[in-house]
Design a protein around this nucleic acid. Structure first.
Lengths: 135, 135
DNA sequence: CTCCGTGTCATAGACGACTATGACAGTATG
DNA sequence: CATACTGTCATAGTCGTCTATGACACGGAG
């Protein structure tokens, strides 16, 4: 699968799962109508407890991203693609705002912050390319 | 004082205190030789428990940023300025890397990420200016 | 010396996140 | 029908963070 969680990332594991499922829907990796990985499968794959995945899926159901198909599992809802595309910007923006604020607060001026961002970008792209290739 | 903590920021409160003290030292707001605010004063100011501040100060002592002055309190160590200036870049860089990674992973391309950053910057600067003015 | 402020330590409790198990009702598949 | 899979629920335990409270030794100021 295309998911990966980090236990000590600040964000709770179930929250990371929620975000990444939304991202997968937004990018089209998980098209509407397709079944999401089962709670047991995903739990095993992420080396995480079953209930943690279940908690993430419950939240995704409440938000309308996933729909229960009785006896089959959870499917990506019809309107989820549009919804997730709109939401991912906000999700990223919120975290970005926090970090930028801390960066400026730390005494780094605008140029230095932009240099840091520019310096990180190549490594990020490289990592992303490796991930897509690996899949 | 120049510190402010957010209980649900992902980062633990004592960690936020550690980081911000380091930033204050790095920017010169807390010069070497000066006394850090007492645990009780800072705890009251941040509306946080005494032990939480104490935990942050203990870590700062271990890392050599603060030094105990018996009967007086904790003072900024001599070499702390240089040390904190070098470290703040790493502290910011680590968080920045995480967020940039998530942004790219969410399916946003490079241009969109940079647009988001550019869009946030003015608000950040405005907030920073307001903070400096308020002080 | 007395009073006050300093940091430090120990104990206990609340809370959220996560794990570990077991059990249940559904449905697809054979 | 039986098996295997699905999500869901309940319980209990661990762990880290934070809070609440009390106590201690130390040094400055009066």
């Amino acid at each position: 699968m295309f998911l990966h969680v980090d236990p000590d990332n600040g964000l709770a594991i179930y929250d990371q799962i929620v975000r990444q499922i939304k991202f997968a829907v937004a990018t089209g990796a998980l098209p509407p109508g397709e079944m999401a990985p089962s709670v047991r499968e995903l739990a095993r794959e992420l080396a995480v407890n079953l209930n943690t995945v279940s908690k993430a899926y419950q939240q995704l159901q409440v938000e309308g991203v996933l729909e229960s198909v009785r006896g089959m599992g959870l499917a990506v809802a019809a309107g989820a693609l549009k919804q997730c595309r709109a939401e991912r910007v906000k999700l990223v923006q919120e975290r970005l705002r926090e970090v930028l604020w801390e960066a400026r607060q730390s005494g780094l001026d605008l140029d230095e912050v932009q240099k840091l961002i520019a310096a990180e970008m190549p490594a990020i792209d490289k990592k992303l390319a490796a991930k897509l290739k690996g899949k």
